[in-house]
Computed example of a mutant assay.
Amino acid sequence: MPWVAPGKTTRSKDYRGSGSFATFLIIGPVCFFLGILFASFPYDFPLLWTSDPVPDAYYNQLETHLRFIHQSPPLIARLLNIITAVGFLGFFIKLFKPSEANVLFDGASLVLYVIGVGVYISNIVKGLRMVSAGGWDEGVKVDGPYTGEVILGREDSLKVLSASNTILALVLVGVLVLQAGQWYAERKEADDTIAADEADAQKKEAKEVAKASKKKN
C-alpha cells in the first residue's frame, strides 16, 4: 500500500494502536452518540419494532419531543459539532503515517464514521427541521425512482427519522467493532510473537545442550 509508512508495524515505537490516546478520542464520541440514540430508542421502538397500532397521541408526544430537541439552545448544537470533530481528530492522528493495521482497521472505521455523519446531516437534521417547522400539510417531498416524487406525511416522516436513528446506531456500533478487532489483532500478534520467541529460545538451548554433550563424548 503506497500510503503505509515504510517499515512501520504494530511493534514500532510510533505505532498508534488500540492503546493510544487517539483511540480514546474515537471511542469517546462514538459511545456518547450511542448514548443519545439509546435514549431515543423508547420513542423509536413503537414505530419500527412493533405491529401494534400507534395512537395519534403518541405522534403528538413524539413530535413535541423532537421539536424540543431541535429548538434547544445553540450551545447544544455547538457541543455536538465539537464532539464530532474530536472523533475526526482521533482518526487523523491514528492515520498519520499509518501502519498496515491502521489502514485496515482505522481506515474502515473512518469510512463508517463519515457515513454516520452523512446520515445525521442528510436524514436526521433534515427530519428535525421538518418537525420543528410543522409543515405536515404539504408533506416531505422525496425523489422516487418511478413516480419522480413521493410525498411523505407526518407518520411516514417520523418513521424515516426513527429508521435513520437505527441506521446511525448500527454504523457507530460497527466503528466500535472495528476498534475492538484492532485490539484483538494486536493482542493475538503479541501472543504469537512471544510464542515464537520462546520456541526459538528452546531451539537455541537444545542446540547448546547438544554441543555440550558432543564435547563431553
Rank of each mutant, 00 (worst) to 15 (best):
D56V: 09
L178C: 04
V54W: 03
G148P: 10
T147F: 13
V119Q: 07
L25S: 00
S51G: 12
T50M: 07
T147D: 12
V125W: 01
V30G: 00
G148D: 01
T147K: 14
V177Y: 09
P53T: 09
W136K: 08
P74D: 09
W49S: 13
L80M: 15
K13F: 04
F38I: 06
F92H: 07
D137C: 04
A195D: 12
Y59G: 02
L104I: 14
T9E: 11
R67A: 11
P6V: 01
T23A: 08
P46E: 07
Q182A: 06
K211C: 04
V171A: 11
V30I: 12
I36K: 10
V117Y: 11
L25Y: 01
F91D: 01
P53E: 11
K211M: 06
D200L: 11
Y120L: 10
V103W: 08
R129D: 14
E189Q: 15
W183S: 07
L158K: 01
F24L: 14
G107W: 02
I167W: 08
I167H: 07
A206G: 01
K141I: 14
A57W: 03
N165T: 06
I194N: 10
V119C: 07
K97V: 00
L161V: 05
D56H: 12
E63V: 13
K126Y: 09
P98W: 01
N81E: 14
R67M: 04
V86P: 00
L172Y: 09
W136N: 00
I82A: 13
G107D: 02
G181Y: 03
P145F: 09
N60L: 10
P46F: 03
D200V: 07
T193M: 07
A196T: 08
A101L: 13
V175E: 00
A163M: 10
L79F: 13
V117P: 00
F68L: 13
V103M: 13
T193N: 10
I151S: 12
V173C: 13
G35N: 00
A195N: 10
D156M: 11
G118N: 09
K188R: 14
G153E: 09
T147M: 13
Q179R: 15
P55N: 03
K211P: 04
H65W: 08
R16L: 14
V131E: 05
